[in-house]
Structures are given as structure tokens and as C-alpha cells.
């Protein structure tokens, strides 16, 4: 009981400098159950009182791939080498949709959880992080469909395909490279919701989801490689289809860009978080 538990002498300090964004890595670790609970809640909510949920999850990447295969393959005459353009696009769209929804959830998370974070102390990074995980279930569902499709269509993926779900698990890092900026801004200014959608629309075309990176003119490659989403898409597709479409150097550039963006993002998040609650 309470009375028997020795009272910790570590005082919790509350000042104007108190960090409500992250705390420390230890703080975040202590709150891991909340990350889990919020993720589970979002997954449950997505599949509750829905009829089409699984259908939508499967159709979204499938139809996108079909349409893009038509547009890029038949209209624009894009070639994806020995891999059929539909398969190429389908693999890309599966991981892209995970990134896409993880980013929009994560960017919206502080606004969505505003009732909670203005009433209970939780590190504000937790909802932003949890937002990146819940659509992993959607990803797994469409990934299984992909594997079945590949097997049925006679394409035998290499052993590296078993790595694909784990590579996808690294997507949140790419997402955070964006959402650490977008989440507090969306909390403060509602119109950043629109900006997130706009960014996602542009990113879809600036990321090699439906086209191979090596088709991009060399002049633009260094710029596009700065995109934190690049390495996830490329590594995921490489693990499924056995080949990358860009020089490994650009993977490192993208990964480096992700880390730099996350580090700056953490500072940005921390700074905006100071004023966030008062204006949420």
C-alpha cells in the first residue's frame, strides 16, 4: 500500500523550464506502455464500426499501383527494367501508404490529443511517436496481399523479403523527420493540416515510389536524395524485389538527412512545445 512504499526523495521539479516535450530517454522508456496503448487504441478504432476497412487497406495501394502503371507505363512510357511496372509500383505504394498515413497521423497527433495533453501530463512526443505506429497493421495486411500476389504471379522473391517488415518498422524515423516539425505547428496553427496534405502530395512525386530513382536526371538526384523518405522506400523495395534503383551513396545521404532533420526537429519541437499548451 501507499503508506508502505518509501517515498522517493527525488523531487519532480516544475518551473518555466520544465520539459513537457520529451523529458529524457529514460522518461520515454518509462512511458512505453502509453505508446503501446495509444497505438492499440488507434488500431482498434480504425477497425471498429467499419465494413470496408480491410478492403480499403488492400485496395488503396493496389488501385494506386494499377493507375500509376497505366499513367507512367502506357502514357509516359516509363520502363522499370525486368520488373513489371505494376509490381514495381505495387511494392512502392505499400510502403508509401504506410509512410503517408503515419505522417498524417503523426502530424495531427497533438491536435487530436489536445484534450488529453491539456489535462494530463504526458511527454508530448509520445502521441507524435504513437501516431507513426498504428498504421503498421494496415501495412502488414497489404504486405501479406503483396506476398500472395507475388507467389501467385510466379515471381519468386529472394530471402531478403523476410527483412521487409523490419525495414518498414524503421519508417517512423523518416516520418519523424517531418512530423517533429509538422505536429507542433499543426497544434498551434490549424492550417498546417492543409500544408501536411500538400507536402504529402508533392512528396509522392519527389520520392521514387512509382519510378526508379536512376531515371531522375543526375542534376536533380542530390536534391531528391535529401528526402528522408527515400531510404525507406528504396531499402524496402530492394528487400522485396532484390534490386535498388539508386546508388547506395544516396541511401546514406537520405539517412543522414533523416538524422539531421530529426535532431533539428527535436530542438524545434522542444521550442514550440513551450508555448503549445497555452494556445492549443
Amino acid at each position: 500500500m501507499t503508506a508502505n512504499r518509501p517515498l522517493s526523495d527525488d523531487a519532480v521539479d516544475i518551473t518555466s523550464a520544465t520539459d513537457t516535450a520529451f523529458g529524457s530517454f529514460r522518461t520515454l522508456w518509462n512511458w512505453r506502455f502509453l505508446t503501446w496503448a495509444l497505438t492499440v487504441r488507434d488500431v482498434k478504432l480504425r477497425y471498429k464500426q467499419t465494413v470496408l476497412s480491410f478492403g480499403i487497406v488492400i485496395l488503396r495501394p493496389l488501385l494506386s499501383a494499377v493507375i500509376m502503371a497505366f499513367v507512367l507505363g502506357s502514357v509516359a512510357n516509363l520502363s522499370t527494367g525486368e520488373i513489371p511496372i505494376f509490381v514495381f509500383g505495387f511494392v512502392g505504394s505499400i510502403i508509401w501508404f504506410y509512410f503517408n498515413y503515419a505522417l498524417s497521423n503523426s502530424a495531427m497527433s497533438l491536435l487530436k490529443e489536445s484534450d488529453t495533453i491539456s489535462k494530463v501530463h504526458v511527454p508530448h512526443f509520445i502521441p507524435v511517436l504513437a501516431g507513426t505506429f498504428s498504421t503498421y497493421v494496415d501495412f502488414m495486411v497489404s504486405f501479406i496481399v503483396l506476398v500472395v500476389y507475388l507467389l501467385v504471379s510466379g515471381f519468386t522473391p529472394g530471402w531478403t523479403i523476410v527483412l521487409a517488415p523490419f525495414i518498414a518498422l524503421a519508417t517512423p524515423l523518416s516520418v519523424l523527420a517531418y512530423s517533429l516539425f509538422l505536429a507542433p505547428l499543426t497544434g498551434l496553427f490549424r492550417d498546417f493540416r492543409e500544408l501536411t496534405n500538400l507536402i504529402l502530395q508533392f512528396l509522392l512525386f519527389l520520392t521514387p515510389v512509382y519510378y526508379p530513382f536512376d531515371k531522375v536526371p543526375a542534376l536533380f538526384q542530390p536534391v531528391l536524395a535529401l528526402n528522408p523518405a527515400l531510404w525507406v522506400i528504396e531499402l524496402f523495395r530492394a528487400s522485396v524485389l532484390g534490386q535498388m534503383t539508386c546508388d547506395p551513396f544516396w541511401i546514406w545521404v537520405s539517412l543522414g538527412s533523416t538524422l539531421v532533420s530529426c535532431v533539428i526537429g527535436i530542438r524545434f519541437f522542444r521550442a514550440l512545445d513551450r508555448v503549445l499548451i497555452d494556445f492549443l
Binding site: 517515498l7 527525488d10 519532480v12 516544475i14 518551473t15 520544465t18 513537457t20 491539456s118 501530463h121 497555452d278
Partner: peptide, 19 residues
């Protein structure tokens, strides 16, 4: 109460608690 619950930061001053 919000400051004590660590939801809102104080502008000035300090509060602390144990446990």
C-alpha cells in the same frame, strides 16, 4: 492544479513534489 499536474508551465516561480 494544471501547473501542479505538470500540464502547464508556470511563467515564474517553482513548484516541486515527491512521489
Amino acid at each position: 492544479l494544471k501547473i501542479l499536474a505538470r500540464v502547464v508551465r508556470p511563467t515564474r516561480g517553482r513548484a516541486w513534489y515527491r512521489g
